[in-house]
Design a protein around this nucleic acid. Structure first.
Lengths: 239, 239
DNA sequence: CTAACAGGTCAACCGTGTTGTCATAAGGTG
DNA sequence: CACCTTATGACAACACGGTTGACCTGTTAG
């Protein structure tokens, strides 16, 4: 219950670690991201992060109240990077598609942060900028406010949720992933047509489709539906 | 590397536990589900499950190779129960909507199993039945095979992914959940209109919408898009 | 120059999945 | 019925995880 964390503003004494490192929130978040990128999502633990930083694990609790809080900071940093690489063109549908794919890729690379960021609000700068930008695209396209918010919500959750899911799949050892594909080929593709007519009829497509992420297709479906609603709501300005 | 697990068919000796319980795959899976339902998703661990069963934790490794395998069995059982409660009417859209909501609810109650089941194939009976049923609905509605598979994939992943996400949110302690809502009200709803025009304009809707799951709306969007594609592909039989 | 205290460190606690080893009762066999 | 094999349960241990209370020390304000 003791509060170990000091608000960033009040930080004064920058005392170096035994190994000579001067800690800071930014350094910790940056190192965490590097750790994940180099050794996978599971490589991020308080203890490993401490080791990578050259500091005792417990030191991190001077900067973040819990491991989740640390991950939230990582999530916000990720949002910032994703948004930074995104250059909207004015075509709402193309812009959202591009952003969705970028968010998905980011979430795929950092699943734990994505999961956390999807159901918790960081309230940090990058997140706020992202919300503003996406809402801007939707409202600029002509979506009425309630609809814009609804689509914003579905869009963001979809990107993060699929990202988290797909990254779990990507994290499996090679052998296990191959075994999964084998189940589709060995079990599903061999079901007799008289007991399982629909699987038998689509087996070819199932084997091919289930090996990939469903996200791009799902994203296009969402954008399709949004476009249809926009067309229905707006009196039709063109075509 | 030693294989401790014996295939169910070869099981003969039903030796009771010290506490007098006779183990079986079904009993273990059933107890796991009960544990989750009574004490939340995090209550499921090999050790706790062992305790709940009245058996040493290590005994479970005679039935499942790893904790993940156990969870996969739980997932398949869940699929079975969900499917069992579902009564299709012949209206593809209503049927899928109903099934989607049921799957989402199931995933919400059993997030870890849902996550696992979303990127791994169990290849067990219930899963196969579910795949056959959903494909049947889609093909019956007139979707061409490749499209049916694509929509099947997006539909299933969406239900499971959103379920996993929402359950993470539901698992937060009350206080934390209230704190989240407070961020929307205190931070987002107070941003000035000149720096964040879009957030300011939609603040009311944001506060209301972000408190709920985006799944129902996302599901409707997906079904909208599917219906549109069906209408475009089929020469239009009615209306 | 000195006193206060921020912040780094250490050791410990309790939880997790998993495995090597042992012991014993079940059940087929004669 | 008695014996032997072996399936299966139990035990103890390992490595890893997050977290915290207590301590110690360098930095900095006064």
């Amino acid at each position: 219950m003791n509060e170990r964390v000091v608000p960033p503003a009040a930080r004064r004494r920058r005392r170096p670690t035994k190994q000579g490192v001067v800690l800071s929130e930014e350094l910790i978040v940056g190192t965490a991201l590097r750790l994940i990128e180099e050794h996978g999502a599971d490589a991020l633990s308080v203890r490993r992060l401490g080791r990578a930083l050259g500091a005792d694990p417990s030191s991190l609790y001077r900067y973040f109240r819990t491991a989740d809080d640390l991950l939230l900071a990582v999530a916000d940093e990720l949002i910032g990077r994703t948004l930074h690489a995104w250059h909207p063109t004015g075509d709402w549908r193309a812009d959202l598609r591009d952003l969705g794919l970028r968010m998905h890729a980011g979430a795929l690379a950092h699943p734990r942060a994505a999961v956390l960021g999807s159901y918790r609000v960081t309230g940090r700068v990058h997140e706020i900028r992202a919300v503003e930008a996406i809402l801007g695209v939707l409202r600029g396209a002509g979506f009425p406010d309630p609809e814009a918010v609804r689509i914003y919500h579905a869009f963001v959750d979809q990107a993060l949720a699929h990202g988290a899911l797909d990254s779990a799949s990507a994290a499996m050892p090679r052998a296990a992933r191959d075994a999964e594909a084998a189940v589709w080929r060995a079990t599903y593709a061999r079901l007799p047509g008289d007991t399982h007519p629909h699987i038998a009829a689509t087996a070819r497509h199932l084997v091919a489709d289930m090996a990939h992420s469903s996200y791009p297709a799902a994203l296009d479906l969402l954008l399709d539906a949004a476009a249809a609603r926009l067309a229905a709501a707006a009196p039709a300005s063109r075509s």
